[in-house]
């Protein structure tokens, strides 16, 4: 039987999130897979045309409904389930959007979910990290039920543009609940690159000591065109907002360059940066575990080193 993959698009109402292009690459790892992207939105047209350009996508389905203005799992799940009939696989990204939604879909389909797929070995066999990435588990899907999965975005390059898939309006017949209502989202607006897609990331830890001190990292980041990240300790202490947390329970990222500044290197943090191409560690403790994974380690006081780096790079 040939594989037909339905990918649930992530978007912010106008723009397709890059995580969707990564799901496409993951799905293309299944030999011969026919890929459909579904866009649920209040107004899907702009997002659908972005999805249609992704190389490898055969078709884009749009489901337009005012109830889809905010992507609520309880509202989206019955719509995706109503469309899932012809598909063998339903994929979404392993972002907070996908983590929230996909298990709800899986349960309604009475099937299991494979979380955080990092490789597809066959249409039914997948690799995924467990224990904060300290082990890699290969699982084989047993049975005829649909396969629901979330895709670990750091493991896949985004599918390039160059496609021209047909866009089709889908009508779904599903009762949508009203028990869940969107109230607000507070997203800090920033001109800096997005943490999840940036090619350079500078992260700070507890050692920064205050939100004010984080400014030296922002300043260096601006010089480098880098995104800023943080350890859990730094977020818990209020030095940085929660959306900057990198790690097992924060964001899993794969930048070209990752600089860990005043971060000890707990396993939960390292999980988030395993796929970084080059890791730089700056820490005053030469025994800090972060140095075991760093390509370049520098022992010293960050409050001296960071301004110096900025000066040297600027020159």
């Amino acid at each position: 039987m040939s594989s037909k993959v339905l990918i649930v698009a992530e978007h912010d109402g106008t723009k397709l999130n890059p995580s969707t292009a990564k799901c496409v690459t993951c799905a293309r790892g299944i030999t011969g897979a026919e890929i459909t992207v579904v866009v649920c939105a209040a107004d899907a047209s702009a997002i659908a045309s972005q999805a249609a350009q992704l190389a490898g996508v055969a078709k884009v389905l749009t489901v337009e409904n005012p109830a889809n203005a905010h992507l609520l799992a309880a509202v989206l799940a019955p719509q995706i389930v109503a469309l899932a009939g012809p598909f063998t696989h339903v994929f979404g990204p392993s972002t907070t959007f996908g983590k929230d939604l996909m298990p709800r879909i899986a349960a309604l389909l009475d099937t299991a979910q494979v979380s955080d797929v990092m490789a597809t070995q066959s249409p039914t066999r997948f690799c995924r990290p467990i224990y904060a990435g300290n082990a890699i588990l290969t699982v084989e899907f047993d049975g005829a039920a649909k396969i629901v999965a979330t895709v670990r975005t750091a493991s896949f390059e985004a599918a390039p543009n160059g496609g021209s898939a047909a866009i089709e309006k889908a009508s779904v017949d599903a009762a949508l609940p009203t028990h869940t209502r969107f109230v607000a989202v507070s997203a800090a607006k920033s001109d800096r690159p997005d943490l999840q897609t940036a090619s350079r990331v500078i992260s700070g830890g507890r050692a920064l000591g205050s939100a004010d001190a984080f400014k030296i990292l922002y300043s260096l980041a601006d010089k480098l065109g880098a995104a800023v990240g943080a350890s859990r300790a730094a977020v818990d202490a209020g030095f940085a907002p929660n959306e900057l947390q990198v790690g097992q329970t924060g964001k899993i990222i794969a930048p070209e360059l990752y600089m860990a500044i005043g971060i000890s290197g707990a396993i939960q943090h390292l999980t988030g940066i395993k796929d970084a191409r080059t890791i730089v560690a700056i820490n005053k403790d030469s025994e800090a575990p972060i140095f075991e994974v760093a390509d370049f380690g520098l022992v010293g006081d960050l409050f001296q080193i960071v301004p110096e780096l900025e000066r040297l790079i600027g020159a």
């Binding site: 959007f97 028990h179 109230v183 507070s186 959306e243």
Partner: peptide, 14 residues
């Protein structure tokens, strides 16, 4: 209040 990739989202649920 939920910790989401974009920041903090608030939902009201029955």
């Amino acid at each position: 209040t939920r910790e989401v990739d974009a920041g903090l989202e608030t939902l009201e649920v029955d």
